Simulated scan of single mutants.
Amino acid sequence: MNKNSLRGESMLLVAAFIWGIAFIAQRVGGNMIGSFTFNAVRMLIGGFTLLPCIYLLRNKTTIDNKPDVTKKQWLNKNKQLYIGGILCGIILFFASNLQQIGLSYTTASKAGFLTALYIIIVPIIGIFFKKYPSITLWISIFFALCGIYLLCITDGFNISTGDTLVILSAFAFSIHILAIDYFSSYVDGVKMSCIQFFVCGFFSSIAMFLFETPVLSSILQAWMPLLYTGVLSCGIAYTFQILGQKNVIPSIASLIMSLEAVFCALGGWILLGETLSFKELVGCLLVFSAIILAQIPSSARVKTDTIV
């Protein structure tokens, strides 16, 4: 293993750890302030955090800096950037708020594993685009469904409101991943992410004033989870993902990033005292096994952009 690969894998591991603990911060923050308020503030923090990253990571060879670039090329490039950023921000608004509201009714440990289902949901969506899953992926889907059943279904075949919302957020994050995958081929990923954070923060702010009563003292009281999820989860972890994936093959990168579910479960146990029954532990194991198995078939995968 060369130094670049080792550095890249280390960055991805740190990102997965940050994202895993972010579920804990979201759970704690959600108990202090409303879900829309929490997301509005942390997304705006994330956007401002990425501004210096954009400056430091600027590439002098991009189309924006070429001396012979035409005005039309420049306009087309920026048009795609803003369309992609706005669209991804709107999708992220639904995904992040479904997740945040769901966390109010379920544990961070379960939410971490359920959210990670996006790795399986993305290829399922691909069926509608005539990209058919392999046998291994179908086995992964079966394991995932069994895991969800053990994790979420209680006596009488009932599933909690929180678990339902988190599963819906996993579907929304899957659509978000596909949108990122499409637009990132044409625009700067970090710039687009910055725009999406501001867009998501804007719409979350509207929802905040419509459905909640934000109190400044409560927001200030939640400063630690807000800064963690804004600066570390949105800003630093996303940038680590961008840099880390440059030197790590996609299949390995995906496996490392999926460890966020494990870090979340460990964090929930250590920091929040959350406990899982034997049935739920088996469910977590099945879901995580499905996530790992889904990445084995080939080194080509759908590019992921995980934000919690």
Rank of each mutant, 00 (worst) to 15 (best):
A22R: 01
L259H: 02
V28R: 04
L226E: 05
M192N: 12
K71L: 14
S160L: 09
A294K: 02
A253P: 08
Q221T: 14
S193N: 14
S204Q: 09
C53V: 11
K79A: 12
K130R: 13
A95T: 06
T213E: 13
T213C: 09
L92S: 03
S5V: 08
Q99E: 15
L178K: 09
T164C: 14
I90Y: 04
G189T: 15
G126M: 01
I86H: 05
I177D: 00
N31D: 05
A222Y: 09
K79V: 10
G268A: 07
S193G: 15
D68H: 04
I45Q: 06
L137T: 02
G34C: 12
F209M: 14
T106K: 07
A179G: 08
F94S: 14
L137I: 02
I45H: 00
K66N: 13
M32A: 11
A108Q: 10
P52N: 07
S104A: 13
T115C: 03
Y228T: 03
L271W: 11
D68E: 13
F209Q: 00
T213A: 13
F209T: 10
G235H: 09
R27Y: 14
A222C: 10
A25I: 10
I242D: 06
L276I: 08
W19Y: 07
L227D: 00
Y238E: 05
L293K: 05
L232P: 00
L56F: 11
G102C: 08
S233M: 12
T275S: 14
G283T: 09
I121L: 04
I90Q: 01
K3T: 12
L216Q: 07
I256D: 01
P297S: 02
L281G: 15
T164P: 04
V282K: 07
K130Q: 11
P225G: 06
A179S: 15
G112L: 03
L87T: 15
T239L: 10
Q26W: 06
L259T: 03
T229W: 03
F36H: 04
I90M: 15
V308N: 06
S258K: 01
A290I: 00
L168T: 03
Q241T: 08
A222K: 04
D188I: 02
Q245S: 05
N39K: 00
K110T: 12
I101P: 00
I124Q: 07
N39E: 07
S277N: 14
V190P: 02
L87K: 08
V122I: 15
T61I: 06
T164W: 12
G47P: 10
L243A: 02
S205W: 05
I33L: 14
F36Y: 13
S298I: 00
N65D: 10
D188P: 07
F113K: 06
V262R: 05
P123D: 03
G147S: 08
T229I: 08
M257T: 03
V262A: 07
L51Y: 07
G47W: 04
L114C: 09
V69S: 15
Q245F: 04
S134L: 08
I101H: 04
I63D: 06
M208R: 09
S5D: 01
G112N: 05
K3A: 10
I24R: 02
Y118Q: 01
L232R: 01
M11T: 03
V215Y: 10
L285E: 12
T136W: 01
A144I: 07
Q245W: 01
V190E: 01
Y105S: 11
Y55R: 13
R42Y: 01
